[in-house]
Amino acid sequence: MNTLAFSLLTQAVTAGSEATYWFPPQASTTAADIDWIYYFIYWISVFFTVLIIAAGLWFMIKFRSKKNAPPAAAGHNTALEVTWTVVPAILCVFIFYFGLTGYMDTHTPPADSYVVNVTGVKWAWSFTYPDGTVSDTLHVPVNRPVRLVMSSEDVIHSLFIPAFRTKQDVVPGRYTEEWFEANQVGEFDIFCTEYCGTKHSEMLSKVVVHAEGDFTKWLAQAGNIHERMSPVEAGELLVKQRGCLQCHSLDGSPATGPTWKGIWGRNEKLADGSSLTVDENYVRTSILQPQAQVVAGYGPVMPTFQGKLKDRDITAIIEYFKTLK
């Protein structure tokens, strides 16, 4: 976008990336463009607002008359009417055009974008990175396009990052996307902007923009849960993050898969008629080759986690199972 033409008007805001009277900081590559369009409309609006209010006030004072004054002569001026039809129309075409190009920029993620999966649930966000790491704040590298692929577990939410000037509803039953390229290291607010119930106003999070290299460090550290926590804790986190609990209950209630209540050391009858005791071997097989030994009464529907869970992850899950009495 040609920012030069109106640089005089917008210099104060496009030059720096700090917060201004109107705007939060410009921390993404598209923010400056969007602010520019905003100010373009802003100054048009200021012009017309001042013009109309001043004219109205002036007429009210200037043409004020006594009650018995004769009525004024009717006026008509087609040229004038055409003017104030055509001028706003032309301005509108420009605003539409700038709005359109800006929108297209913010809706066309570059092909090499870094993808983060986002899940909205009443009233928290969770962010899943390509390596399976999950966090409740969004961490991104600076100067790299990031594409968020989002869905909701319950009602409609909306992920809004004012500093990036980006927002998109997060809709249950489908994916929506938004992208940005942060150009400033720091922490910025994330808001939920689609009303989602009681704690809608507390469905907040942060986006942490890391400097070059720092992001990979953060990811390695965040991803390596085994160094941060005990095996039992790590196992508990893993089964939550990987959606195991969608099909396996912890309290004995029936679900798509067998319950995990008291699973360790339990005797299971298998679909082929044989039976076995749940031990390390069986758990490992069930995770990596779920169809091999299916418990009687359940369908062979579990997906494999081969390549998705590391050996150490499975060990942690086993340690966690031992605590489920």
Binding site: P254, T256, G299
Partner: peptide, 11 residues
């Protein structure tokens, strides 16, 4: 196929 009714969403 689904175990019990009401599984439309999760399965």
């Amino acid at each position: 196929a689904e175990g019990h009714s009401g599984q439309h969403a999760t399965a």
